[in-house]
């Protein structure tokens, strides 16, 4: 994998690529927000509230994407024992939980005027809520051990098991009860959404992705540096003793 499993090479890579991701984030989210909030039409049924979509939908995408990144990185860490993969999984979890929380909160704000309730027990809402709890469980487990390495391994197994379960949870909840509209961007054929709304939505989607990438690179960098500091301190203590 381009030698990125080597922490030193990864640090170099992060230093090189990080600022570009940050710049792309500012441009994409900035333009997406401007078009979404000011330069796009209001919905003929939902009025101005439809603008919540430009934050709600991308954060839902990222909530699921971050979990996939976490699970794949965990699988890589379990199989090949790459130290950077552990850091990626660990760094991805709070970001994904944050996006999922943003999705739930904006969804509640959108649901109140549209459905007349902050919360309904609908399939998609419920599966996002469960996803949020899976993130919480993962983070709680990775922090529950005195030995950080054990926490990383145990939570990696949990992430992989959860990954298998997420589609099952999704389908079971879909069959259980549904009110939320079906997917309108990722379905086969043309998206059933007007280009005037699709463009800011896609800008925000890509912008959220680069935002996530920027933060993830930062988190992994600081994790690697922390590990090094810990190792240096341990070496000093043993050297004195």
């Amino acid at each position: 994998m381009f030698g990125l499993q080597n922490p030193t090479k990864f640090l170099k890579f992060a230093k090189l690529v990080g600022p570009w991701f940050a710049l792309a984030t500012v441009l994409l989210i900035g333009s997406g927000l401007w078009i979404g909030l000011f330069a796009s039409p209001a919905d003929y049924q939902q009025g101005e509230t439809v603008r919540i979509m430009y934050v709600h939908v991308p954060s839902a995408w990222m909530g699921m994407f971050a979990y996939t990144v976490m699970a794949v990185a965990s699988a890589i860490a379990l199989v090949w024992k790459h130290p950077v993969a552990d850091h990626v999984a660990k760094g991805s979890a709070p970001l994904g939980a944050g996006f999922t929380l943003i999705c739930l909160v904006t969804g509640a704000l959108w649901g109140k005027p549209m459905w007349g309730a902050w919360w309904v027990w609908d399939a998609r809402l419920t599966s996002m809520l469960i996803l949020f709890f899976l993130y919480l469980g993962y983070m709680a487990l990775s922090g529950a051990f005195d030995n950080a390495e054990r926490g990383a391994k145990a939570s990696a197994i949990l992430a992989v098991v959860g990954w298998v379960n997420v589609p099952i949870i999704k389908f079971s909840v879909d069959w259980w009860n549904t009110l939320h509209q079906p997917a309108s961007v990722t379905k086969a054929g043309m998206p059933s959404i007007d280009p005037a709304m699709l463009i800011p939505l896609l800008l925000m989607g890509v912008g959220f992705t680069t935002f996530y990438a920027t933060l993830l690179l930062w988190r992994v960098r600081s994790e690697i540096l922390q590990t090094r500091i810990r190792n240096i301190r341990l070496a000093q203590i043993h050297g004195e003793g």
């Binding site: 709890f133 709680a140 959860g162 949870i169 079971s172």
Partner: peptide, 10 residues
């Protein structure tokens, strides 16, 4: 409970 209950839901 935090780990297992979400997986019990299906």
């Amino acid at each position: 409970s935090l780990l297992v209950l979400p997986l019990f839901i299906p």
